[in-house]
Amino acid sequence: MQYALQLAGVLAIGALETVKIAVMALAISLPVGLIVGAGRYSRTRYFRWPAAAFVETFRNIPVLVSIMWFFFAFPMLVPFEISAYAAAVLALSLNTSAFFAEIFRAGIQSISPGQWDGARALGMSYRDQMRRIILPQAIRRMVPAFTNRWIELCKLTALASTISYQELMYTTKMIANAYYNPVEMYSVCGLIYLAIIYPMVRATYRLERRAAKETA
């Protein structure tokens, strides 16, 4: 019994680390994704091209590959150490930002040109059109796509275990190796992820249904 309690404590710490990585990566990805997404929509090619390159690069390199790159390759280029935490958060943030940028761009593009024309006819500046008319409508449409990506991000955090960052997956692996109980440990680990992520999946279904009703 005491053994079970100790295990639960260790797993809880691991789960907390998992949440920490996910939240940190989200906090970085939201602003970066919005800026890059706006850049892709810019009329100046000096913003548009770098933004497109950013999106294509980080969307097309598998996250595990960029985690490895940031952990094993990047430190050779820079004069400072890169912790496993930093490498994981960096790789996850860049990947998620690229996807957020695409969602953001598609959301703005989905607003009918009449909305822009109408706002301009009222004498609004480009910034006002964007801030008061386009963004409020676009963001509502983007919410289900954002939450879907957030769910992906939560799942991808498990990849940090491959560079020995002690989140839930790594903790599970260590215990399973030490106690020879892979069946129990990996099943419990799966259930913990399910308990964290499943409610979010349900919430996304609800959001998608609501969005479908609004556009219908």
């Binding site: 997956m169 399973a176 680990c189 499943y198 999946v201």
Partner: peptide, 23 residues
Amino acid sequence: VDFFRATPSLVQLYWFYFALPQI
């Protein structure tokens, strides 16, 4: 479908590689 959507693929892989053979 929901199960596979809500768990990391790495956990699934470890489960099939380390747990399933024992079962």
